[in-house]
Design a protein around this nucleic acid. Structure first.
Lengths: 337, 337
DNA sequence: GACAGGAATGACAGCGCTGTCAATTCGCTG
DNA sequence: CAGCGAATTGACAGCGCTGTCATTCCTGTC
């Protein structure tokens, strides 16, 4: 039969309650007792039964990761975040549920409520682009559910993890400027995603800092997909005066731009420099390998989950961790022609 | 306070045990009673507490989806399967855990055992390429854990879902033959993945049926990634007699082939026909859009999970569901030059 | 050395459900 | 209409843990 808490207690010569205290890292257990109990647990390979803990303690040990499956192209990004969240949960013997949530309409409220009453998560991890969807945040607060976000737009009071994307965008455009480029285009992502805004803002800032007047024709709309990158590039290459460099708001679009360059007989990076954002697996598989900004998605998922768990375990507040960005300079960018 | 089973019982005028019977679809409840109880549940919006059900009934209502994070390039494929599994679980109020499992070495046994003793899944869903990893299957059997597979290699006794990939590969090569191609190359996937074997076998069968002797130079090794497709294409284009069509074992590699064609100044489909396999999101974003075989991953995940749940719920055995394939003829294939 | 006050430990009930088995009702048959 | 087996229902204990509160054990103080 399975080893129960009671068995551990008997072996350690203490009451079940004391074992429970050790299990839950509670205070008021003498160090010697704690050690003895830990040893007994170890020796018997004791694993607490989650359902019993949940029932008696009125907690679920479940964290839910919410994502929008409405218009989310970069599923590899989500998969990585998920891996990170899972890793953090494992460390504290929490379990992770993933839940897609279509954000249009009010439907999501019913789905969220169903999630809560069916699975009782203790907290949730929010992923882009739903880190700042007000109706959702409101509902979470009403239901008194703690949450942590990966790359939230609003930083006031949020907990989770964020990278300074604007600064990163500025830096990568700075890299292009340094190579002598003056006509630098930007392919924007889906309009209301935070990522799109920051990256655009960083682009503008860099251009302005260099004393170059912004040419509106060089900023074209994309949608984070490969094909939208191709389309955007067609638009740019149709200009009388073509850009010599393109900064796309993510790697998929950058790949589309490179593709289109091929169609137009332009060699990358000789005739055109291209850079992206995210450092997706694709980036270093391409030829030439893509210059981009590294987003450590997995790490970010892990950090966000850790902050949430800090809150859940009452280990002091949980905060918004800022992580540094890193440019990945590869072969797709070179001196201006 | 939350509504408990006892409250429902009182409202319906029956004993708690009877409500429990209705909740679990047990036999020997009169139709009228069943209806009355159902109505009471509905009216009170009763949601059973999973932990209490688990503790008392010694079941967990958890299904684990296992995947290999060792060398798995197509994470978008996994994400879709995951969505399908989740959907099936939701229908029966089961919850889903996802677990990466590195398959090299014996480490995975420890990790699997930890998963089992920490979370007590009632069954697992296996995804390619770990549907046929003997040490894993053995351990699952030892632990008496039912499993269902998505696209298992061995069909004997397995339950889950499968598509006739060999027949599909044969059909898509047939499509190329019909267009008049005679020098048709094949880019193979990672060697020991079932998918690679089937697709290669289908290719061979089609070539043989057409009475064309197989040219070993036209079969090159790839690794399911974009860059391996590029490399494979380079190899093919270096031949004295280039192929007029390439069938890559997945869409990523096909995209790589198209990329390489551009580098060599070949126009697809005018100078070279290219087709892939999977119908990944990428396929119809490309220009020209890729001819490929549709793999309904989401649907397949759902079906596999349903078969597993049939077993878990004692609803008759669970079987291996064969689903039909469908060619997606798009713009990347045309008559031989 | 007696005692206060906090730290450490334990006894016990009960979380919300299901398994077991006994009790009751029902539908037939002769 | 008595009598029997099958279908239906219910009483009750208990799953493995934790919350509450009582008890015991320290430590330091005058």
């Amino acid at each position: 039969m399975r080893v129960r808490l009671e068995d551990v207690a008997r072996k350690a010569g203490v009451s079940p309650k004391t074992v429970s205290r050790v299990l839950n890292d509670e205070a008021n257990v003498s160090e010697s007792t704690r050690q003895r109990v830990r040893a007994a647990m170890e020796a018997m390979d004791y694993r607490p039964l989650p359902s019993a803990r949940s029932l008696a303690g009125n907690r679920s040990f479940v964290v839910a990761m919410l994502y929008d499956n409405n218009d989310n192209p970069a599923s590899t990004y989500l998969a990585e975040i998920q891996d990170g969240v899972l890793e953090a949960c494992d460390e504290h013997r929490y379990s992770m549920m993933v839940r897609p949530l279509r954000m249009r309409g009010d439907e999501f409220v019913r789905r969220l409520d169903a999630l809560i009453s069916d699975h009782h998560p203790e907290g949730v991890v929010l992923t882009p682009p739903i880190t700042d969807y007000e109706p959702l945040l409101r509902r979470l607060k009403e239901r008194n559910l703690p949450y942590a976000s990966v790359s939230p737009l609003q930083h006031d009071g949020a907990i989770g993890v964020a990278m300074d994307e604007q600064e990163a965008a500025r830096a990568i455009v700075g890299h292009l400027l340094q190579l002598g480029h003056r006509r630098i285009a930007h392919v924007v992502g889906i309009a209301d995603h935070g990522a799109s805004r920051w990256r655009l803002a960083g682009y503008r800032e860099a251009i302005a800092d260099a004393g170059i007047g912004e040419d509106p024709a060089l900023v074209v709309q994309g949608a984070f997909t490969f094909s939208s990158g191709v389309a955007a590039a067609h638009e740019l290459f149709a200009l009388k005066e073509r850009p010599t460099a393109v900064f796309a708001a993510n790697d998929d679009m950058a790949t589309g731009v490179m593709w289109a360059a091929g169609e137009y007989g332009m060699k990358v990076p000789h005739d055109l420099s291209v850079c992206g954002f995210d450092d997706s697996p694709l980036a270093c598989q391409l030829w030439p390998a893509l210059t981009t900004v590294r987003q450590p998605s997995r790490e970010m998922g892990k950090i966000a989950a850790q902050q949430l768990l800090n809150v859940l375990r009452g280990q002091g507040g949980g905060r918004l961790v800022q992580i540094p960005f890193a440019l990945q300079i590869r072969e797709s960018t070179a001196a201006a022609p």
